[in-house]
Simulated scan of single mutants.
Amino acid sequence: MNDSIQIIPFTNLALAFIPVAVVIAIIWKWQLDYKDAVYAICRMLAQLLLIGYVLTYIFASDSALLVSSVLTIMIAASSWIALRTLSVPRQALYLISFISITFGGGIILLLITQFILELQPWYMPNYVIPLAGMLFANAMNSVSLAGERIEAELNRGLSYEQARIIAFKASLIPITNSLFAVGLVSLPGMMTGQILSGVSPLIAVRYQIMVMCMLFGSSGVSSALFLTLIKNKLQSQSQLKQT
């Protein structure tokens, strides 16, 4: 297979923003908040361009301390972002979110890198950072869905136990749908990237199986831990609203 990947010129890359512009135009025409979408696109562009340079430096540095610092920043940022849909102040729940994402994503990252891939050295940045990014982002989304749903169910008057079951189920919907669709409807990013770079599809499939298992695990563990630790705070808030 071809071992090189085609480089996209910036002029060609600009064409990818045509469908983006179409969607933003629809948002504006339907009198929705198009500024939020524009901000999100601009932020995505700036963050990805910046991280491209940062990762180039990190991959060349071969520093365990630097990789550990990047992982800490990832967890800190994802823990904060996960709480943005909740009415409870983020500061009140940040530690719970941080613990949930760290445990749910971190333990699985350790399993993947040290016992499945057996990385030497353990901090190989070109493996650890991309895998950590997938794990922590997935855990973040799961925690966010679980938090938003359990708050809504408690506000409807359900007991904590009932709300927790509904919220946990909701938090697993995206990754469960992905499990059903992978290989049939979609070829996920990691597998697609490996195939485009010349890796045999049979090898890429092994990596994708590993990725799907770790994403399902991080979703379930992180959201379950979050829903367990958040019990007292959400129940207190629900009681205050009723009085």
Rank of each mutant, 00 (worst) to 15 (best):
G220H: 02
A146I: 14
M191P: 00
L215A: 08
S78R: 02
T85E: 15
A21I: 11
S186A: 08
V22C: 08
L227R: 05
L95I: 14
I7F: 13
S238I: 13
A132M: 00
E151L: 06
S69R: 00
M212F: 14
S222M: 04
I116G: 02
L32A: 14
S171I: 08
T72K: 04
M210R: 07
A152F: 10
L234E: 03
S68E: 04
D3S: 15
Q242M: 10
P89K: 00
Y123W: 12
L86I: 15
I203K: 01
L145W: 03
Y94E: 00
Y34P: 01
F59K: 05
L179I: 06
A64E: 09
S142E: 02
I73N: 03
W80A: 12
A139F: 06
S142I: 02
I26W: 14
L86S: 08
A204I: 04
K231W: 10
Q208N: 15
V211K: 03
L13W: 14
F180N: 12
M214R: 05
G198I: 05
Q242K: 13
L145G: 02
L65T: 13
I166E: 11
G198R: 00
I81M: 10
A167F: 09
V143M: 01
P130A: 03
V70T: 09
F136K: 01
I75F: 03
M140H: 00
S200L: 09
L86P: 01
S79D: 00
V182E: 07
Y123K: 07
Q162A: 15
T243H: 13
Q162D: 12
V67L: 06
A92G: 09
A40K: 05
L110E: 07
L225K: 10
F10R: 10
L65Y: 13
M212Q: 15
V205R: 09
F59W: 02
G52S: 12
E153V: 04
G52M: 07
I108S: 11
L71P: 00
V143I: 06
I230S: 12
L234C: 04
S61Q: 10
L93V: 09
V182Y: 04
T192I: 05
A163D: 06
S4G: 11
I24N: 11
Q91T: 10
A139N: 03
T72M: 14
L187R: 01
T176C: 12
L227N: 07
L215S: 05
M124K: 10
L83V: 04
K35R: 05
I7S: 10
T113F: 04
V23I: 14
V182S: 13
V88T: 13
Q120T: 09
V185S: 01
S100D: 08
N141V: 08
A14G: 06
L95R: 10
R43A: 00
Y94Q: 03
Y160Q: 05
W30P: 02
V205D: 06
C42H: 07
C213S: 07
V205I: 15
L93K: 09
D33M: 10
P121S: 00
I75Y: 03
S197I: 12
I230Y: 04
N232Y: 13
G105F: 07
G183E: 02
L202N: 13
A46C: 14
S78H: 01
S68I: 06
L32H: 09
I51T: 10
L131M: 10
L55T: 04
F136W: 03
V221W: 15
I41M: 11
S178M: 11
I5P: 03
M212N: 15
S171D: 03
F226I: 03
F226K: 11
